[in-house]
Amino acid sequence: MNPFSHIDLRVNNLEKNLPFYEGFLTALGFIQTFHSDKWKVFAANGNLPSVAYFAITEDPLHKPNGNLVGFWVENRDEVDRLATLIKEIGGKITSGPQQFPISPTYYAVYFEDPCGNQYEIVHRLN
């Protein structure tokens, strides 16, 4: 069982950040949208509420902090592909993609969205 349900994320400027998330989340497989005036919701394939989703809203006072959201992908090529996409859509690579000494198979890229929220995409076998 995967207990993950969703992420509610704040950005300080939705108009500036939304194009990044439209490209990034779609590439990760969040292909359904359920948008309202205040929330932009990207969901995985399937039926809510049983599929994971990522919801974004604007808070002009939001300031990024030390929190980090990590995503797992199936292979190193996918880490590299997404790292290239992140740069193309306005994200900032902060480290990688590369092998990290966390485990013998830990290959990752760390990055920030245009607002400064921190993320990681990782492939590892153990």
Rank of each mutant, 00 (worst) to 15 (best):
T26D: 13
F30G: 06
A43Q: 08
V41A: 04
R10M: 07
W72S: 05
L28I: 07
F42G: 06
P64Q: 07
F71S: 00
F34L: 08
E22K: 15
L48Y: 08
L9M: 08
F42N: 05
G23D: 13
W39I: 14
I31C: 12
D8G: 15
A52F: 05
L28D: 00
F20K: 13
S5A: 03
V41R: 11
A44K: 05
L61V: 06
S36I: 15
E22G: 04
F24S: 02
N65E: 08
D59S: 08
L68M: 13
V41Q: 09
L14H: 03
H6F: 09
F30R: 10
L61E: 12
Y21G: 09
G46P: 02
L25E: 04
L48Q: 05
L48M: 12
A52N: 07
G29K: 05
F4N: 00
F54I: 11
L25T: 11
H35F: 15
R81T: 02
N67V: 00
I56M: 14
H35P: 08
V79G: 04
V41I: 15
P60F: 10
N65D: 10
F30Q: 02
V11M: 02
A55H: 09
K63S: 15
L25V: 14
L48E: 05
L68N: 05
D77Y: 12
T33H: 15
T26N: 14
A44T: 08
F34Q: 13
G29M: 06
Y53D: 00
K16F: 05
L25G: 01
H62W: 14
G46K: 01
P64E: 10
V73E: 00
L25K: 06
F42C: 03
W39F: 13
S50Y: 08
E58D: 06
Y53S: 00
D77K: 12
N75W: 11
V41N: 08
E15S: 13
S50F: 09
T57Q: 12
S36G: 14
A27Q: 03
G66M: 05
F30N: 01
N47A: 11
T57N: 13
W72I: 05
F4C: 01
S36P: 03
T33V: 13
E78S: 03
W39K: 08
A27F: 00
A43H: 11
Y53T: 03
V69M: 00
L18E: 12
V41L: 13
N17P: 02
V73N: 02
A43F: 15
L48W: 04
P60W: 14
F4L: 15
R10L: 12
D8E: 15
F24V: 02
S5G: 04
V51G: 01
Q32Y: 02
D80I: 10
K63F: 15
F20Q: 13
K16T: 10
N45S: 13
P64I: 02
A44M: 14
V41S: 07
E15I: 14
I31V: 15
F30A: 08
G29L: 04
D59T: 10
P64W: 01
W72E: 09
L82E: 01
I7F: 09
P60C: 11
W72F: 06
I56Y: 03
E15N: 07
F4G: 00
F34K: 11
E74C: 07
R10W: 08
E78V: 01
G29H: 05
H6I: 02
G46N: 07
T26H: 12
P60T: 15
G46M: 06
A27M: 02
H6L: 00
N13L: 10
L68W: 00
